[in-house]
C-alpha cells in the first residue's frame, strides 16, 4: 500500500467519522443509526494505522493486496448497514400500517 493510498484511506475514514458525529450532534441522525457508520470509519482508520493487522487479514482471506481487503471490509459493512435498514424498514412498514388502521377505527368511533 503506497503512502498516497494510506493518506487517502485515512482521510476517508476520519472524514466519515467526523461527518457522522456532526450529523448526530445536529440531530439529523439518531445514535442508533450511527453505530455501524462509526464502526466502519473506525475500522478503516485502525486497519490503515495498524498495517500488520491489515496484512495478516489480507493473508487470512487470501486476497492479493491490502487495498482489496479494505474494499472487502468496506463492502461488508455496507451490506450490514443495508441489512440493518431492511430490518428497520420492515418494522416501520408494519408500524405505519398498524397506526393507519388504528386511526381509521378511531375516526369511525
Amino acid at each position: 500500500m503506497t503512502a498516497q493510498q494510506k493518506i487517502a484511506a485515512l482521510i476517508m475514514g476520519a472524514g466519515l467519522f467526523l461527518v457522522i458525529i456532526e450529523m448526530v450532534r445536529r440531530r439529523k441522525l439518531a445514535e442508533e443509526y450511527s453505530f455501524l457508520w462509526l464502526l466502519t470509519g473506525l475500522c478503516v482508520i485502525v486497519l490503515v494505522l495498524w498495517y500488520d493487522l491489515l496484512e495478516w487479514l489480507t493473508h487470512f482471506i487470501g486476497a492479493m493486496t491490502p487495498t482489496t481487503t479494505l474494499f472487502i471490509f468496506g463492502f461488508l459493512f455496507l451490506m450490514l448497514i443495508n441489512l440493518h435498514y431492511s430490518m428497520k424498514i420492515s418494522r416501520l412498514g408494519l408500524q405505519v400500517k398498524e397506526l393507519a388502521q388504528k386511526i381509521a377505527i378511531y375516526e369511525r368511533k
Binding site: I21, V24, E31, E32, S34, F35, L38
Partner: peptide
C-alpha cells in the same frame, strides 16, 4: 454494549451542542 456506546456518544454530542 449498545447502551454504553449510545450513552458515551450521546454525552459527547451533548457537550458539542
Amino acid at each position: 454494549m449498545y447502551y454504553i456506546f449510545k450513552m458515551l456518544l450521546s454525552i459527547f454530542v451533548t457537550l458539542l451542542r
